[in-house]
């Protein structure tokens, strides 16, 4: 269930959970991140994984430069919401 290590210029995101329980993935070139998004992602790596927030919420796993962290949907930094909105139809 673990995705391959992403290239150095990519952010790999896995989205699991949700009512459907589908594990979906997407890769985002770091160069395409908007101002503030890279910093918000770095901040996620600084915090330890939080406990499950509630039934059927998504769980996001960020992987970048050999690091990995899980972010529960309701703990997602506001600054990353536009990124997730842009990816709404890109999951595979």
């Amino acid at each position: 269930m673990t995705a391959a290590v992403p290239p150095d210029d990519q952010l790999a995101i896995e989205r699991s959970g949700g009512f459907a329980g589908l594990t979906m993935r997407v890769s985002v070139p770091l160069a395409e991140l908007r101002p503030g998004e890279r910093a918000a992602i770095e901040e996620c790596f600084e915090h330890s994984t939080s406990p499950p927030s509630g039934p059927d919420r998504f769980v996001y796993r960020f992987r970048m430069h050999g690091r990995e962290t899980d972010v529960q949907e309701d703990r997602m930094p506001q600054a990353l919401q536009p990124l997730l909105d842009r990816l709404a139809t890109s999951w595979h």
Binding site: G18, F19, A20, L22, M24, G54, P55, D56, R57, F58, D74, D85, A88, T89, W91
Partner: peptide, 28 residues
């Protein structure tokens, strides 16, 4: 709820429903 949100959930107070992305789901 949300932008093309592919999910539904119970948040402890409300039952929240997305409209779906249109590709994976068409609404909940």
């Amino acid at each position: 709820f949300g932008h093309r949100y592919d999910n539904a959930f119970w948040d402890g107070e409300r039952m929240i429903f997305g409209d779906g992305s249109g590709t994976l789901f068409t609404g909940f």
